[in-house]
């Protein structure tokens, strides 16, 4: 019996044990399945040490103000840029109301060469596009802008993302002033709420590096948390603001700026 088995050619190309282990690891949840923010105080608070790659993440603006919306967009763009860099593949950005400005996105690290945009007519087709992209498996991450997504829809995306090993980032935009988008149930692994905050003070007149109030409103297997962070740099990385040197210094900065 054995002679027959031995002479049969191996149908799988020969792999060494380490490669085989790696190949198996790809499907299993573990430390390598997350992309850290590269910002220790943030990563410490997220279970897994970063954004899970095979999961849905939701981001909302903290208020209906368009400025908060822009901050949330930049927050997403930074994450997308780091995923694109990590996988060396473009990301897909699907939206139904298209008002993105590419030069601004590039300043958050998202180069024009690493995004493909898709404009759809309504939320339903945005979600369909996101799912199509997950099944295709090409993009490094998929960003979808939706006004509403039901629990069933997010669960669908979560399943598809888990199978594809690709992150889905949903920007949930406000529909009504009094309804918080995060109040709706969702299958997302992490849910973020972003607000813009006063920029880092400069010693001269002018607007400093933007700061955001980043709230991790909910995460699976972890506690919520709030940080005040400096916005994305040219490679999409967040930063912790340098501690101000006492009250006097910061007061002086504000006063200076008010003179401007």
């Amino acid at each position: 019996m054995s002679s027959r088995v031995v002479t049969q050619p191996d149908p799988v190309p020969p792999m060494n044990l380490a490669q085989l282990r790696e190949a198996i690891d790809m499907g299993a949840p573990g430390a390598r399945d997350t992309l850290p923010f590269g910002c220790a105080p943030v990563d410490r608070r997220i279970s897994g040490g970063g954004l899970a790659m095979n999961a849905v993440h939701e981001v909302v603006a903290a208020s209906t103000s368009l400025s908060d919306d822009a901050a949330a967009t930049l927050f997403l763009a930074g994450i997308g840029a780091r995923f694109a860099e990590h996988f060396n593949a473009p990301i897909l950005w699907a939206a139904s109301r298209f008002d993105l400005y590419a030069p601004g996105l590039e300043q958050a690290g998202l180069l024009p060469a690493s995004v493909i945009y898709a404009e759809a007519s309504d939320d339903k087709s945005v979600l369909a596009i996101v799912e199509d992209a997950l099944r295709d498996g090409t993009p490094a991450a998929v960003i979808g802008e939706v006004r509403s997504a039901s629990l069933v829809a997010t669960r669908r995306l979560q399943l598809a993302a888990g199978k594809a090993g690709q992150p889905v980032l949903l920007l949930r935009r406000w529909r009504k002033a009094e309804v918080d988008p995060l109040s709706a149930p969702s299958a997302a692994v992490t849910r973020w709420r972003i607000a813009s905050a006063s920029a880092s003070p400069l010693p001269v007149a002018g607007v400093g590096r933007p700061r955001w109030r980043v709230e991790l409103a909910r995460q699976r297997g972890g506690e919520p948390h709030i940080w005040e962070l400096e916005g994305c740099d040219a490679r999409g990385r967040l930063a912790v603001p340098a501690p101000s040197r006492g009250r006097a210094g910061s007061a002086a900065g504000t006063a200076y700026r008010q003179v401007a």
Binding site: Q19, A89, A102, Y117, I129, D136
Partner: peptide
């Protein structure tokens, strides 16, 4: 067949698929 190569794929297939859903003009780069 190696897992590392999975990500480096041609985006043309993805573009076709989305263009089939929303129309060729609505898939683009800036």
């Amino acid at each position: 067949l190696l897992a590392e190569d999975v990500r480096i794929r041609d985006v043309a297939a993805l573009v076709d698929r989305i263009a089939g859903r929303v129309g060729e003009r609505n898939v683009f780069r800036l």
